[in-house]
Design a protein around this nucleic acid. Structure first.
Lengths: 335, 335
DNA sequence: CTGAAAGCGCTTACAG
DNA sequence: CTGAAAGCGCTTACAG
């Protein structure tokens, strides 16, 4: 068996008070006399007692646990997000039960286990919520925030970078630089991030008279970006500018250009999306659209907390604008 | 209030059985008749019932939760480790309560909260355990595994790469290449990883007649490695070969060399430690010592599980040898 | 200011 | 094969 667990009853016996009083000493009940509280806490300290959060959860109907379901840890953006979430939640007195999913189907399998632990709220990072699970979660009244995804009909709140407008900003940047032969290196097709970034980009190109844009799949990965750029740059009609669906693919594209002896930005402009730390490394100096990570996390936590306090609130979608970070991978104005 | 919670009692009432029977249907009790079980599960399904893991934990004295305390998520090695841990633990039926710590002092503050949730075991990644907390955890009989750290007196088990011998292998590699002017770019001084890698490196250099080795602090970061390499390469007596305490610092060193026009490996050899995915990127092609990540994780989980099953087992230290991965950043044999 | 008691939602001997 | 009952370790009305 495990080491002895000290309970409130033992503390009560030793301190000569009732078990209720021990509980009150730890819950900060105002009514308790100073002297009683001190005596209880002193005895508790000596015995190494700490209230059992599991027992507390059962009676209070609150676990103070937030479930986080995350995937794609291979993109450096997400470890940063995960760390920021856990840090922020801890500071607010919450715990994090972590689940990682390889694919979206896995999320459905994971969710029942998350729910079995009676999480007070749920954050889903870079994974989506099936309508079946959305319904299940609603029925239980558990607030959900999707991070970097949205599922409008689900009732779940969502926080995302304004990817649509981000794509438009990149289009303007590349057109202003005088480029006309453009390509988009796409991410996964089933993601709103990829779809919205591309749609904004293509829409703005069309508005400014560019109807044609090549496309290759980059899969949101370094290897995918590398291979996609290789295909484009070795084709008959190589583009002068690449917009990559995320930074990690853009780094792959830059390395492909380097390998082929294509100079950036003289012969080729490259733009990413995210602004991961590596984008600023001197080997890359990637021009990119920065996702407002801190704001997105703060908004997610705020929406979640509001809905835990007030389960009647409807889900909302929040889109936070990104910022263009101009480094060295887009050629200067004009030509 | 939250959505209605369905309990085993409601299922029992609707199914015309006792609450005990509902419990047995879900715990897979062999004695239950096929027909009763099916009826109960069917009613449960209709009602959307799932056993409350918190209530179960209270009575079974097992939460099936492993606490993971992690820090340094800025080193890409650790998100990979974290993901692998959660994945492996899930497959074995465990949940992960995640805590992130900025510094080692924070771990001490975090631990009481982890313990309040009655975790069945504890994994501490890249953070250390104070002797006070080690004692506390022992008293409670909670098995602990330190990953990539060890604290011999603590009673905690630890799994680490064989950093000492890794350092020796790097020394041999660089000496075999004919280098004599060497430098070590150190990581954090309070870590056994940094200490052991350096000690192995210096010991082996001394054994082979090289008594002198420059040192600079690289802080285990890209920026630190970059700055350290800058200082070394711009000094009066620049080294011909750098051993960096981890890969991310080595990438910084490579970019510093690139910036100064120092050619790698012609003018400078660079070796890292970890083998993070970026080390294989074509922009770097870093020669490095690969940590046996999968084996280290499997060993950690195994040690933890054994000690959860059998709390009497003493803590053990396991050192798993790394593998030299020769890419393009060390000059060829001879000179 | 403090205590006795009920109850959160389960599991599991103990009976039958 | 199934049920009644005790109990895990707390919180919190309800009394006094």
């Amino acid at each position: 068996m495990r080491g002895k667990r000290v309970t409130s009853l033992e503390v009560a016996l030793k301190a000569g008070v009732s078990q209720s009083t021990v509980s009150r000493a730890f819950s900060g009940d105002e009514r308790l006399s100073q002297s009683t509280r001190e005596r209880v806490l002193e005895v508790a300290r000596k015995l190494g007692y700490r209230p059992n959060a599991i027992a507390r959860s059962l009676i209070t109907q609150r676990t103070q646990i937030i479930g986080i379901v995350a995937s794609y840890m291979t993109n450096p953006f997400f470890p940063l997000v995960l760390q920021a979430f856990t840090q922020t939640l801890h500071e607010l007195g919450w715990r994090v039960l972590l689940f990682t999913a390889g694919t979206n189907e896995d999320v459905d399998d994971l969710l029942p286990e998350v729910l079995a632990y009676q999480v007070d709220g749920l954050i889903i990072v870079t994974a989506t919520l099936s309508s079946r699970m959305a319904k299940e979660v609603r029925r239980r009244g558990i607030p959900v925030v999707l991070f970097n995804r949205y599922v409008p009909e689900s009732g779940a709140s969502a926080v995302s970078c304004d990817n649509l407008n981000g794509g438009r900003m990149v289009a303007d940047l590349l057109l202003d630089a005088g480029h006309t032969r453009l390509a988009y290196i796409a991410g996964r097709e089933d993601t709103s991030t990829n779809q919205d970034r591309r749609r904004g980009f293509l829409e703005r190109l069309a508005e400014r008279g560019i109807e044609h844009c090549q496309q290759e799949h980059g899969h949101f990965t370094y290897e995918g970006g590398f291979a996609a750029a290789m295909r484009l740059l070795e084709s008959h009609n190589p583009p002068e500018a690449l917009f990559c669906a995320n930074d990690i693919a853009a780094l792959g594209a830059l390395d492909a250009a380097r390998k082929l002896g294509v100079r950036v930005p003289q012969d080729l402009s490259v733009v990413g999306f995210d602004d991961i730390p590596m984008a600023a490394w001197s080997a890359y100096n990637l021009t990119t659209l920065r996702q407002p990570r801190e704001q997105m996390i703060a908004a997610s936590v705020r929406l979640l907390m509001e809905r835990i306090e007030n389960p009647g609130l409807p889900g909302v979608l929040e889109f936070i604008p990104g910022t263009l970070i101009e480094r060295q991978t887009v050629r200067a104005h004009g030509r």
